[in-house]
Write a protein that binds this DNA or RNA. Structure first.
Length: 613
DNA sequence: GGCAAAAGGC
């Protein structure tokens, strides 16, 4: 009987004629797979160099040293620097098999290095190696490489990488461009390049805006940062919580409390994710814009706090002269099991020094190295010198400086000089100010210090020569400026400013203020004026100080009884401090002044700093 | 099997 083979049968017969692979050795393959799986999961747990080294031996024993999965995981497992070094030295050893390298492996190694603190240079080294080995970068490579450049902060390097991005055709990728903006903003002198890249982007998302806003904010170009945030809203891009962190840090820098409050309600309204970082930025903003109690309330509402949250509030308390509360917070932090770091100690020590807690400060300084193993940095020494000097212990401060294992910096000389001058140790103060001038020959305020000392020593001819020296050196003058926020606008005044549209009214107010002040018994403190002019002109120069202009403006523009908040870029001068006390009483206003160092709350003719700052 | 932006300092 003849039967036609069915299709199925035919199929089977064909199959049977094909040469078959050797029968699967099921046991060995699954053993290999199991070993690979086991190895991968072990690598996941392996985050230190010794563990990795042990595992390396194990990998060799199993014969998995050319398994691409294992190799890549091996490179990516750890954030520990030694482990990364170990992994890459093994992967790229001269005897290693080059054919195993692929883009993914390089990206992994580059990423690992780009995320380290101090070895970003290595990321660029492996990028160069990759290009030399003719392995072409892909769209994931450049964000890592650019991140590494941003960390190193060298513009020339960034420009070269920008060239490669163009060469390899990634100049349309939004991730690459966003990181490029960030890279330029992190390299000295690169912010304009960053802006150019940003402006030329065909499509921007919230990350692009965050990168450029954050870039300006980090550089202290806070008005530009806020301006760009407004443009972002006009452009209709929805900000996320990271954008708001950058905007908040610009508000903090400007002292723009009203804008900061607006950001805070915007976060609520838009239901943005309240990350720890966002909370921390809010706490910092409220504390540094004058409302430290609001910062405290926010802090208490936080479900999860990290070391930055605690430190922000401790520093905030310190700035407002509430040192005891800062100390209590520090202790509360410790009892919550959070281990203080070096920055937390800077906050704590500065709190002690602003509130005259000399003994406490000394104890904590000891505790820092003894119990927490933190090696004191120049900042910690600075706090201690400040603490002792402010506490009137000039001799102790001097001994402390002599026993320091590191070279004193200008901050330390300045603290000492000021203390000596306040204690009448004028000779000593003079010699230290000269050291200060040696270290910072271009800083105007140092010459002002020296000139004040000569004025007290009645050495007029020396005082005159200082001006000549300054002229010869072409000293860069940091103009004192005061900012005030009214009706959602920031106004900035410099000394003798006539650029404001209502300057005539402001100067009339200033004259009236002057009369009222003298009637109340105010006497101008003319010793801090550097100019070699007669007393009456000196008084006039003081009268036009930016602080006084801003206060006059606020008195004109706000209803009686409203508190006045101003922000000065330098330390408030002695004369303005004394005048503001009178103004708070005469006009019955609470005046909150943030200067470079701290807050002064003026009320009823008194200041919260107790005239000691 | 992977990518971008963020918080505290004398």
């Amino acid at each position: 009987m003849l039967t036609f083979p069915s299709k199925t049968k035919l199929f089977w017969s064909v199959l049977h004629t094909l040469p078959l692979p050797p029968p699967p050795k099921t046991t060995t393959i699954s053993k290999k797979r199991a070993a690979e799986q086991n190895c991968l999961s072990l690598l996941e747990l392996c985050n230190t160099f010794p563990k990795l080294s042990q595992l390396h031996t194990y990998i060799l024993k199993l014969g998995l040293q050319s398994n691409p999965f294992v190799l890549t995981r091996f490179a990516s497992t750890s954030s520990d620097l030694n482990a990364i070094h170990y992994a890459s030295s093994f992967l790229f050893a001269p005897e290693a098999k080059t054919h195993l390298y692929d883009v993914f492996l390089f990206n992994t190694v580059i990423r690992a290095y780009a995320q380290t603190k101090d070895s970003k240079q290595s990321a660029l080294f492996y990028y160069k190696m990759m290009v030399k080995d003719r392995i072409f970068p892909n769209k994931f490579t450049y964000p890592f490489v650019l991140k590494a450049c941003a960390g190193i902060g060298e513009l020339s390097l960034g420009l070269i990488v920008h060239g490669s991005v163009v060469k390899y055709g990634f100049s349309d990728d939004i991730h690459v461009l966003n990181t490029m903006v960030h890279m330029y903003c992190s390299c000295g002198g690169g912010v304009n390049f960053g802006r150019k890249v940003f402006d030329e982007m065909s499509k921007c998302d919230s990350v692009s805006w965050s990168a450029i806003i954050g870039g300006y904010a980090r550089l202290g170009m806070s008005s530009e940062a806020v301006g760009l945030f407004r443009k972002m809203q006009i452009a209709g891009v929805r900000p996320d919580e990271i954008t708001m962190v950058s905007v908040l840090s610009a508000c903090t820098d400007l002292g723009a409390l009203e804008l900061g409050k607006w950001v805070s309600s915007f976060v609520e309204k838009e239901k943005l994710q309240k990350s720890v970082e966002l909370y921390n930025a809010l706490i910092d903003m409220f504390a540094k814009c004058g409302d430290v109690d609001k910062a405290l309330r926010l802090f208490r509402n936080m479900a999860e706090k990290d070391i930055v949250s605690w430190t922000s509030l401790i520093v905030g308390m310190a700035m407002h002269g509430r040192g005891l509360e800062a100390v209590l917070l520090f202790e509360e932090m410790r009892s919550n099991g959070i281990v203080p770091d070096d920055v937390a100690f800077i906050g704590l020590l500065s709190a002690c020094s602003h509130s005259g807690l000399v003994e406490k400060g000394r104890q904590y300084f000891e505790l820092m190295s003894k119990e927490f193993g933190i090696v004191p940095k120049i900042e910690h020494y600075g706090c201690m010198v400040d603490l002792l000097s402010r506490g009137g212990l000039v001799k102790d401060a001097l001994e402390f400086v002599q026993s320091m294992p590191i070279e004193p910096n200008p901050v330390i000389w300045r603290a000492l000089t000021t203390a000596c001058r306040a204690r009448g140790e004028l000779k000593l103060s003079e010699s230290m100010t000269r050291k200060l001038i040696k270290q910072e020959p271009m800083l105007e305020s140092n010459y002002v210090l020296l000139s004040n000392i000569y004025a007290k020593l009645l050495k007029w001819e020396k005082k005159t020569t200082i001006r000549e020296v300054m002229g010869q050196k072409g000293i860069r003058k940091i103009p004192g400026s005061t900012m005030i926020e009214l009706d959602n606008e920031m106004y900035e005044f410099v000394s003798g400013d006539k650029t404001h549209i209502e300057y005539k009214e402001i100067y009339e107010m200033l004259d009236e203020m002057g009369k009222e002040l003298r009637r109340a018994g105010y006497v101008a403190t003319t010793s801090e004026v550097l100019l070699d002019i007669d007393e009456e002109d000196k008084e006039d120069a003081l009268n036009r100080h930016s602080e006084k202009l801003a206060i006059a403006f606020a008195l004109l523009k706000t209803p009686p009884g409203t508190p006045i908040r101003i922000v000065k870029n330098l330390r408030i001068c002695e004369d303005c401090h004394s005048a503001t006390k009178f103004i708070s009483k005469i006009y019955n206003r609470e005046i909150v002044v943030r200067d470079r160092n701290r807050f002064h709350h003026f009320k009823d003719g008194l200041c919260s700093c107790g005239d000691f700052w």
